[in-house]
Amino acid sequence: MTRSDDTPGLWDISPPVHAASPSYPGDAPYRQRWTARIGAGSVVNVSEISLSPHIGAHADAPLHYDPHGAAIGALALAPFIGPCRVVHAIDCGPRVQWRHVAHALAAPPPRVLVRTRVQAVVERWDEALSGLEPALVQRLADAGVQLLGIDSASIDPADSLELSSHQVVRQRGLRVLENLVLDAVPEGDYELIALPLKLMGADASPVRAILRTLR
């Protein structure tokens, strides 16, 4: 996504969501059908959509990786809005480590977004996605970070069975944003706004994630 032409200082970091949006193998794809169309029988267009809540930019709930965890609608909104830092760690392999981001995180704000690709993969499932090293997650939690975001579909590699970084997030009470698009965003500090829907039984929620330049 690029900087908004008509709103200076506003960055849209959400990928488009449509029928071709990639999903984790086995997850429900995006589907839409019209239940009413403007015409003889209706004065409005109305559609029905179904999808995995992990399609597109989304916030994970603890319920996603903890059988007793909270659903997304029960989470406080504060971690999803406020000062954040975008850090570049391009093509660092399966897991981003502290050495890849140390240049920008000596004193991190409460929210950190990590760019791992020159161009985010938004048109297909990326089996070679980059996640975060569990030790890095632990270190950022120790530094007071409350939310981690990434421009891939998961903070753990696609073939991970242990979900070790998700488990650190669970233990430390962090929040997670995945599938962001940070292609055009320079490293630096911004305001993040990425509010999940109040879905009271869901393991995740789509978000419309944006960054605003700090005044």
Rank of each mutant, 00 (worst) to 15 (best):
S14H: 09
R3A: 14
R37E: 15
H64C: 13
G26M: 04
M200W: 09
A194W: 00
L132F: 09
P53R: 10
R215E: 08
D203S: 14
A158Y: 01
S52G: 04
A71S: 12
A107F: 13
V112G: 02
R111H: 11
S42H: 12
I90F: 04
V118P: 02
P79K: 01
L180W: 00
D203Y: 07
A59I: 10
T35Q: 13
I72A: 13
R117W: 09
V207G: 03
G93F: 00
H58A: 03
Y24K: 15
M200F: 11
R175Y: 01
H100C: 11
V46K: 15
S21D: 07
R95E: 13
L105A: 04
C92D: 07
V176A: 00
V145L: 12
L195M: 14
R37A: 12
P157R: 04
D151Q: 05
D27F: 04
L148W: 03
G131V: 12
Y24M: 14
P109L: 08
L180A: 05
L182D: 04
A143R: 11
A61N: 05
L129M: 12
P110K: 05
A28Y: 06
A89D: 00
P67D: 10
V86T: 08
P108F: 03
G41T: 15
P16E: 12
H54W: 08
V118W: 15
W98L: 12
A202L: 12
G39V: 12
V145E: 06
G41N: 14
Y190G: 00
A74K: 15
G9K: 00
K198L: 15
E133D: 15
E48V: 10
G173Q: 06
A143V: 09
V145D: 04
Q171I: 00
K198F: 07
W34I: 07
G149L: 06
R208D: 11
L129G: 11
S164Q: 13
T213R: 08
L51T: 11
A89T: 07
